[in-house]
Design a protein around this nucleic acid. Structure first.
Length: 209
DNA sequence: ATGTCGATTTGCT
DNA sequence: GCAAATCGACATA
């Protein structure tokens, strides 16, 4: 079974993947998984190389801190396995994976993607003619390249528009770099939690460090 | 009704 | 390195 010599065939992640109660663990497990979108007839996708965990109610950095249940955050309260997408700074959509059971608003922000398929489509969406450095390195950039919009918030990650797949890539524990999350200075103590995870040495991780 | 501010990115100094 | 871009969600009234 030389899996690596076969064409890469993705296996959609099972519902159980998202029900794990430890969102930090899910954030690590998402490294090496593939996020594929099929939006406006264009199929694009890549490997997740950077994530951040947001632990809901008790996490000052989370939009759901203090059990703040609003129109925007409502999707995070859904059962794990859907996307939470919101508009940041008025111009960038940020994509999250909702985890845990219903009514527990945990989520994992996808911060870095290594382009894998549909490169032409991604370039078109980003208004570029060739792959620039850090093309999909950053949550706003990768969301744009994949065509993900705030209106897609709440869609399942098991298709048809959004799909999260396992393609057999294994990321060992010692290949995972943990560090504090980015851009959450407002979160006080919680801003120091080492809940940002990257694949060691991967080029496609976000700029801020 | 109004004011503040972002889980970012880019361009200019 | 710093500030602008840009708009909806949220808080306050």
């Amino acid at each position: 079974m030389k899996e690596r010599n076969k064409p890469k065939k993705g296996r959609t992640l099972p519902a159980s993947f998202y029900l794990e109660s430890d969102v930090v663990l899910v954030a690590k497990r998402l490294l090496g998984k593939f996020l594929v979108t099929n939006i406006d007839g264009i199929r694009t996708g890549g490997m997740i190389v950077e994530t951040e965990a947001y632990a809901g109610v008790t996490d000052r950095a989370s939009h759901a801190f203090g059990n703040r249940r609003t129109k925007r955050t409502e999707v995070m309260y859904a059962k794990g396995g859907v996307a939470y997408v919101y508009l940041c700074y008025g111009m960038y959509a940020l994509t999250n994976v909702v985890t845990h059971s219903r009514d527990v608003p945990h989520a994992v922000l996808i911060r870095g993607l290594q382009p894998a398929e549909g490169i032409a489509g991604m370039l078109k969406r980003s208004g570029k003619s060739k792959i620039a450095p850090r093309f999909t390195a950053g949550p706003g950039l990768l969301s744009r390249a994949l065509g993900i919009l705030p209106s897609h918030s709440g869609l399942p990650l098991s298709g048809p528009k959004l799909v999260l797949e396992d393609r057999g890539v294994v990321v060992a524990e010692d290949e995972i770099v943990a560090s504090p999350r980015v851009g959450v200075d407002y979160a006080g103590e919680d801003a120091r939690l080492p809940w940002r995870f990257r694949i060691l040495g991967n080029y496609w991780t976000s700029p801020a460090s």
